[in-house]
Amino acid sequence: MFEICAEPRSLEGLTWLSCYLTTPKHAAMYYSILTVLGLLLAVVPPILFLGFAGALARRSKIAPVRWLGVGYTSIVRGVPDIVFFLFFPIALDQAVEYIRHKIKCADVLEPVYQGNDFVVCQAAKMPLGIADQFYHEAWGFSLAVITFAIVFGAFTANTLHGALNAVPKGQLETARAFGMSERQTFWRVHMPQMWVYALPGLSNLWMILIKATPLLFLLGVKDIVYWAKELGGMKTQVYTYAHPDWRIWYFGALLVFYLFLTWVSQRAFDRIFARASRGLSVAS
């Protein structure tokens, strides 16, 4: 990166360290912080959407919709995360490619499933085999967002369902007694009061989500934990910058990073909670 770093093996002390910490490989780790933060921000809207959809489905008066809601939350919550993360993205990836194969390569006669192999035509690949590596990573990132959204959406649905039930019935009955429609009752009274019951659970889920981001690696997206592990491991002379096992330093930095992230989150949640619980006696 710098002039002085041209001959790493001749460097010592702080110069060596500053060159070492600015290698492109380290830059990849710093970049992966953005990947993690980007994932956290990208998954929130779909998680809340699925959470509300699931919670409202479970409250539906229409039985099949209710079953769908209960089925979604129970199945996803019942399956261990790691199994879900291993299985679902591959299934989704294959489903997308299978559909594209059927549309774009209708003339191909060979079956898609050949023994163990899943083979679609080149035009059906997602992304195309010739696409830049960036698109492969973007696709992996998208799969990750969808998978995280489905998993955490189910937990969120459960939290919101519980919170909606926790609002005292008298509050809703009063709204109806004053002539509010079901819709007005929901938006004017039920929703605003629900948050205070939902927020502790949602803040827990957010913390779990932060800690679950290393699962990204299972989806082929290199996150900060992957890089810390990779960079921290012992490096023999085959590497330009050889060093012994430094994982403890890298994991220490990770610890600080995640603690900082959770600390900021906690402060943010405290503020939101204070606002949502204005006037509610549960706050005290």
């Binding site: 290698t23 490989k25 330009t240």
Partner: peptide, 8 residues
């Protein structure tokens, strides 16, 4: 055999 070098 295979590794990620310092250039990434």
């Amino acid at each position: 055999y295979n590794f990620i070098n310092d250039k990434g």
